[in-house]
């Protein structure tokens, strides 16, 4: 080996790089992994399901294999009125999130409550399940498997729902369409409290993948945008053409996410819409053309649900 005169150097190099990786990977890994999931983390896991980036179950990022968040005011099993409740429906075959499949990320207290009170370990992906996020008397958040504890079946729960949010599939759109290249999901600890709301806590991200913090804020932070603006009409117009509601916006149009047909089954003709819009922009029309309502299974609806659900 012609490397013999470099033996000491090579050993030193290996030692230096190993120490560096021990300090910057192993130690932070131990520290971060010791954090219990917060209530926010459990809600996010149950809203977004398994991984949202490229994965086996949705390789082309079409919003497949995602749970549905529903708002209930009556018990799906008995039909009795109940207090307004958010439930997370995993139809049969939908893959469970990290907190259920890799439950070490929950933290000891959360895991114990989820199993003993929430019967989380009885849920099965083949049969599907409905989950709730609850808290014990000591304010420890936990996952309740309502299919086991209350007999709520996925299909019955979807039928009984007042509102359905395709927020999980919407996160897939958020990742695929690159929204996070301009919008951060990370209010900064130093100065963003008043404008963009509470910065996240350490345990808020457990089980979320990808976190899509974003690094280059060319546009407002969106972590709590649903609390600032909860208007579905505004969001619909804004996604179709941001300049309709904010003339100075530089956001791209997402009109192509409407697909071929709108909610009424009418074809979406972007070219014709565009022609009328430019007449409006040039002052030849008083009103801009109507924005079509997105179909219930359109990608635009998923993305709007995701954004409205960012509370």
């Amino acid at each position: 080996m012609a490397f013999r005169e470099y033996r000491i150097g090579s050993i030193m190099f290996g030692v230096a790089l190993s120490i560096s990786m021990f300090i910057t990977i192993v130690l932070p890994g131990i520290d971060i992994s010791s954090m219990s999931s917060t209530k926010t983390a459990l809600e996010k896991q149950l809203t977004y399901g398994w991984e949202t980036g490229f994965n086996y179950y949705d390789p082309f990022l079409q919003g497949k294999d995602k749970p549905i968040k529903v708002v209930l005011t009556k018990d799906p099993a008995t039909g009795e009125p109940i207090d307004q409740t958010d439930a997370y429906v995993f139809p049969a075959g939908t893959h469970f999130p990290d907190g259920i499949t890799h439950d070490n990320i929950l933290g000891d207290d959360v895991l114990q409550a989820s199993v003993s009170l929430g019967k989380m370990d009885q849920a099965s992906e083949e049969a599907g399940a409905v989950f709730l996020v609850q808290a014990t008397e000591d304010d420890v958040p936990y996952i309740e498997n309502a299919t086991a504890t209350r007999g709520w079946q996925p299909d019955a729960t979807l039928n009984a729902a007042d509102q359905q949010f395709l927020a999980g599939a919407g996160k897939t759109m958020f990742v695929r369409e690159g929204c996070w290249w301009c919008h951060t999901l990370l209010p900064e600890e130093t100065q963003d409290w008043q404008t963009f709301g509470r910065p996240p806590l350490v345990g808020d991200f457990n089980g979320e993948s990808p976190t899509t913090f974003g690094s280059d804020r060319k546009a407002p932070d969106l972590l709590h945008v649903g609390s600032r603006n909860s208007s579905r009409e505004w969001m619909t117009m804004h996604f179709f053409n941001p300049r309709l509601v904010q003339p100075h916006s530089i956001m791209p149009r997402y009109d192509y996410l409407w697909g071929d047909k709108d909610a009424n089954g009418n074809p979406v003709d972007l070219a014709a819409w565009d022609k009328e819009y430019f007449e409006y922009a040039e002052g030849k029309r008083v009103y801009p053309p109507e924005v079509p309502t997105p179909a219930a299974d359109s990608e635009a609806r998923m993305l709007i649900d995701f954004v409205l659900n960012l509370k």
Binding site: C179, C182, P252, Y256
Partner: peptide, 22 residues
């Protein structure tokens, strides 16, 4: 150009900023 003039080449999935930036 898209950040300066957002309606420049719009309406196409493939030419949208979020698809091209990376």
């Amino acid at each position: 150009a898209k950040l300066a003039f957002p309606d420049f080449f719009h309406g196409s999935y493939a030419l949208q900023f979020g698809h091209m930036r990376q």
